[in-house]
Amino acid sequence: MDKQKLEYFKQYSEIIPNFDAFMESLEKEQPYWMRVNTLKIGEEELIERLENKGFKLEKYKNLNAYKIVVMPVKHPGATVEHSLGYYYIQDLSSMAPVLVLNPQKGEKILDMAAAPGSKTTMIAELMREGTIVANDVNFNRLKSLGGNLERLGITNVIITKKDAKSGNFGIKFDKILLDAPCSGEGTIRKNPWGFRAVNDREHKMLARSQKIMLKNASKHLKNGGIIVYSTCTFNPWENESVVEYGIENLGLKPIHFDLPIPHLKGVEEWRGERYENSEYYKRIYPHLEDTGGMFIAVLKKE
């Protein structure tokens, strides 16, 4: 990998524990993970079919999450089974926010920045019945979202194309996922060519719009409902700082939650900012379980 790109991450040496291992992990190729679309097929049946074709898949704990250890094709989605909508390629770290959201039958859930739908489709798979409003501003990414819903046979999603900062989503929801647009530092392993290092000013600008999105999310949340705020980046301005803004200014309360994927707690302090509630947040790092990176917080409206 590009030395300059790696250099960029040194700014986090103080906040990422076991930093050398972290840096090493960035240079390693990231394995693919997948989950079975149990709306269409049973886990065991699909795994057997793929293994008969020469795949080697490792189930992660008791989750519907499989690490692809060996694949007989160039891309893990190059199979009839994938085309039939029997599985979805998704990094374990990206499954985490949905596990935390813990969708239940009959709920109304808003996914504010949803495309291409990795998390939307997983919400649908877990909830079985209920209603999801999946929103994004980007037309081409929305087309991928639509394609994924069709392929997986998911019929309970309403797609909208609004600005998450200001869009009106009609009602108040039981749960909201705000998987915010971010600087994407945690996806560098998956897509080293696509990764673009951003400067402080850009981080701050992203943080500003993330806060406005959180405010709009809060407006659309029922009393007693939760917002899961997630990003795939490490920068605390886009994470802890945004969530603490919600706690201080929007009347949201941080909630403790479990996560069956290895993680560490939030950052306490960075570049002069202190984060009071860091023990409520979770951070998934690439060197913990050989995945991408992810930040997750749960906020409740009382």
């Binding site: 109304k108 409003v133 819903l149 046979g153 309970n156 309403i158 797609i159 909208t160 009609g170 009602i171």
Partner: peptide
């Protein structure tokens, strides 16, 4: 389009269920 959720009256729906 076939839709299995509960209809929510959001303005400007792009897609409702699947074709």
């Amino acid at each position: 389009w076939a839709f299995s959720g509960e209809f929510i009256d959001v303005k400007d729906i792009e897609v409702l269920g699947i074709k």
